[in-house]
Design a binder for these strands. Sequence first.
DNA 1: GGGCGCATGTAATGAGTTACATGATTGA
DNA 2: TCAATCATGTAACTCATTACATGCGCCC
Lengths: 168, 168
Amino acid sequence: MERELLLLGLLRHNHMHGYELHEFINRDLASCTDLKKPTAYYLLDKMAAKGWITQTEEQEGSRPPRRVYQLTAEGEAAFQRLLRENLVAYHQARFAGDIGLAFVDALEPEEARTLLQRRRDTLAGELAATRHIPLHHGTLQLVIEHQIRHLKAELEWLDEVLGRLSVD
Amino acid sequence: MERELLLLGLLRHNHMHGYELHEFINRDLASCTDLKKPTAYYLLDKMAAKGWITQTEEQEGSRPPRRVYQLTAEGEAAFQRLLRENLVAYHQARFAGDIGLAFVDALEPEEARTLLQRRRDTLAGELAATRHIPLHHGTLQLVIEHQIRHLKAELEWLDEVLGRLSVD
DNA sequence: GGGCGCATGTAATGAGTTACATGATTGA
DNA sequence: TCAATCATGTAACTCATTACATGCGCCC
């Protein structure tokens, strides 16, 4: 699974704890993935059980203790394997919004335009927000760049659809 | 859920049975969604239980009997509601392939290029195949058009990434 | 005679989510 | 003092998948 790859990749250079990983992913990588807290803890436990990562209890002042993870040799091997698997394969994207578009002719063009205009506004907001994400180091930045390209293309596509709905 | 919307939308104009729906979706809409057979039957049962659709047993010769579904008034209402819900919202796309890209600098550029070239080949094949899907009627065709646009954009993006990997 | 297509399902499993629970610290 | 942040988790549930099971008809 690519979520495990993501966690391993992040833990490779920075030893982090669950809360920190969840926070990083949902703040800086939200445009690409989302990982809920229980899922993060669940995956970390699972990978620890597989021997891919080890945990060290850490305490800072009187804060809640936290479990900081780092890769083992097997973890690094798993990372290498998952990375190559991920890179060779083309992963098809599914666009949930297309199912609505497929049946948009069931509505009056005017209502359809109003609804899609709202979708467009959200999309434009998403694009603006993604443009303001601070730069990541190394190829992590590719994820953001890809998302920005995609959002721009989606905006153009939606505008074309809106245009067609006005003409028809 | 958008899968229910999809099934309702298809059943609105053509009364179909489970096998037929599954076949249509996985042949003509594969670029957009996929729906496994058990999932199709499961959803149809669920929607029948909710009173959204009714089934009529049909027999053609000595073929296995089949359950042909059609929308009820509540089904039509559900369709209208789900359609509007789907159209207003922007549904974020997640690109599983980006997680590999995020860590591609863990590999030698040469190996990375080789792996991504294979991804590119699959992608190009997907684009060619999608271009040969026969036209759908009405706005169903939008789904295919969107996918073609997306695949073209992805190809350009991958080529840029490959170019950068050669330079660095 | 063997395999594929038609047509339906069940059972087990997995992945991920929501909602809930805990408890200390920090800041307004 | 009240809310938010830090930090971890459990339990129940949903959605969808895989693997398995059945049985007839058609074509080579």
